[in-house]
Write a protein that binds this DNA or RNA. Structure first.
Lengths: 346, 346
DNA sequence: TTTTAGCACTCAATAGAGAGGAGTGCTAAC
DNA sequence: GTTAGCACTCCTCTCTATTGAGTGCTAAAA
């Protein structure tokens, strides 16, 4: 049995209604609110068919029906018409990136905040995967007689700077020399290519300052290690309370706990590395814990290299149309901003 | 009527029991569990007195009694014996600061995490008030032909670094010159003393590079502005779910919303600027919203200058003894660490 | 053949009644 | 001053209708 036009209409009506009300939808409601010119009995028959086909589910016999993940999938792929952003939202997003120079992580954090504000879902963002990023410059900047700043600049902005203690009697010229060595060794490499052991041959340059050499190696290697670190940023975690299905303390708590599992969230987002917007509905998701949620993600890039992923998570009865258009727009705006700011690298 | 020894004993028993169980305590429980050698009827009479004196409250006639804020205050000031940390906890804290050089904000963030882990309450931390901090060094570090890094180093570590675009044809010597000018103007001043207008007289040095001058001023002033910014860090927000009195969705939600009001939290913490540990119990707190919570705070310092505040927040039936000893220890450890690391400044 | 009206049936949600129990306050005796 | 005893309060839990939204089926109408 194929889905004829009327079945589709009814299915769409049920999905629309359920997205708004979060209550199982009955045949009478469909007949009255979405006047299709047929009686509730007819709709009842159709709904029965739709259930048999796996598009609808019944929480219990005397309740209305609820769309299945399969129905949402159909809805996203075929039924729904993608809304474009309204002016206010577009303006909000534009404002975020207008004329600002922020540290990379700040940009992503702000993006997450705006995402959760606009969609009223919880937003998740992956900071850029620095292992893929090229080291542009390393420099030891003298600060005063005791301290220097080790700055590592990458093709996507600054990675990191660390205060490092310098031994007595070290001259600025020596720091410059060290900077040059570091650049020779590491410039142009990505973080995954870098190997701290490459420094060993130049150890003799440090002569009597072996302690300085060691602490430099320490700082650099922890810096490189950290660059591999997964970092997951969140926005609007308590937005989940807006939804009636999370008025239950156990559900709310389990959601909030889920949001604290950064490793899991990382995996979820990292899996969608192919450019563009991706929608995962409930059980489509490979992770058992996400069975009850839907996730809409988009990637962001620097030039044509994908750097990371942003997304929103919410109940499966998500406003897909809105979420998708927002994510699409946001991914593109963020990529634009980054590419404009950090441009093409040598 | 003054509180005699037996009344104090009974009060202490009730507080102890309520802190553990979160259930109103009845006269029989006191008689049996905390054998004072008198019958429940006697205790009942004493409890009645204690209620009249404002130390106990009754949720309803046929329930046991619950300590009032006044009782907790007495408990904290007189009754309780301050536990010292157990070895495991002390070790945990020591570990946190051992041999690590972290960015200032990282230190505070980690401190908050450990605090909430150890106490199982939610922790709040104020990042250092940079307006009181002295600028040690400003430098423009050339990164490549398009960008330089503006680094502002303060007496408490790095404040901030910002990537800044430099116009074509600017030579490193010029950047150094600019760095020197900036240092002349701002070195040794605190952020609250600094005035961006001081730069105007040197504007002519920039000659044809007025755009560069302008963007420099922009970045600097936003940097200075940001230094005044209140920043509140949290740890263990979902710990609140551990407590039976927050199994109710409304209470849990209202707590989590409260934790999102960064301005309010800032005010709360900022108000305790006198050195040492401070305890605010329920209604003692000037803020209406905190009526149901108790807060234990401690300050942390660099040398003898108070930089900020850390604290834990939880239900009024808090384990004050534990909380106070942890906060005391933590405040001191953090101050030690900072002072050792960033030491005495010129 | 499709649609519809009608009706019995199901089942969650809600309200109400009653029993149980923890705890108090009071009184009278010790 | 202390305690045993007892009536009383009031929350909590359980059990039992009652209600109502919604279904599925059947038979008649289109």
């Amino acid at each position: 049995m194929e889905l004829d036009a009327r079945k589709l209409q009814i299915l769409q009506a049920i999905i629309n209604d359920y997205i708004i009300t979060a209550e199982p939808v009955g045949s009478r409601t469909v007949a009255r609110k979405y006047g299709l010119g047929v009686s509730s009995a007819t709709i009842r028959n159709e709904m029965s068919d739709l259930e048999e086909l796996g598009y609808l589910e019944q929480p219990h016999t005397s309740a209305g029906r609820v769309p299945s993940d399969k129905a949402y999938r159909l809805y996203v792929d075929k039924l729904m018409r993608v809304r474009s952003l309204d002016d206010q939202e577009a303006e909000y997003i534009k404002d975020l990136y207008r004329d600002k120079i922020m540290q990379l992580e700040q940009v992503i954090l702000q993006t997450a905040k705006v995402l959760s504000d606009i969609t009223s879902y919880t937003s998740i963002a992956l900071t850029p995967q620095l292992s893929k990023v090229v080291i542009r410059h390393i420099q030891l900047v003298p600060v005063d007689k005791d301290f220097a700043l080790l700055v590592v600049v990458t093709s996507s902005g600054i990675l990191k700077d660390t205060l490092i203690r310098i031994p007595e009697g070290i001259h600025n010229d020596f720091l410059n020399k060290v900077s040059n060595i570091l650049n020779e060794q590491f410039q142009g490499k990505t973080f995954s290519e870098v190997d701290i052991k490459d420094l060993s041959p130049v150890q003799e340059v440090f002569a009597e300052n072996q302690r300085f050499f060691n602490s430099l190696v320490d700082v650099l290697s922890s810096s490189f290690q950290e660059s591999q670190k997964k970092e997951v940023l969140l926005g609007g975690t308590t937005n989940i309370f807006r939804f009636p299905e999370y008025q239950d303390i156990l559900r709310a708590r389990s959601f909030l706990s889920l949001m604290e599992e950064k490793d899991l969230l990382y995996q979820i987002l990292a899996s969608s590395q192919n450019n563009g917007v991706k929608v995962s509905i409930g059980t489509e998701n490979p992770h058992e814990e996400l069975r009850d949620y839907s996730i809409v993600t988009a990637t962001y890039s620097l030039g044509d290299r994908v750097l990371g992923t942003i997304g929103v998570i919410g109940p499966t009865r998500m406003e897909y149309s809105r979420a998708i258009s927002v994510m699409d727009h946001m991914g593109k705006s963020l990529s634009n901003y980054l590419t404009k700011l950090y441009g093409k690298q040598p």
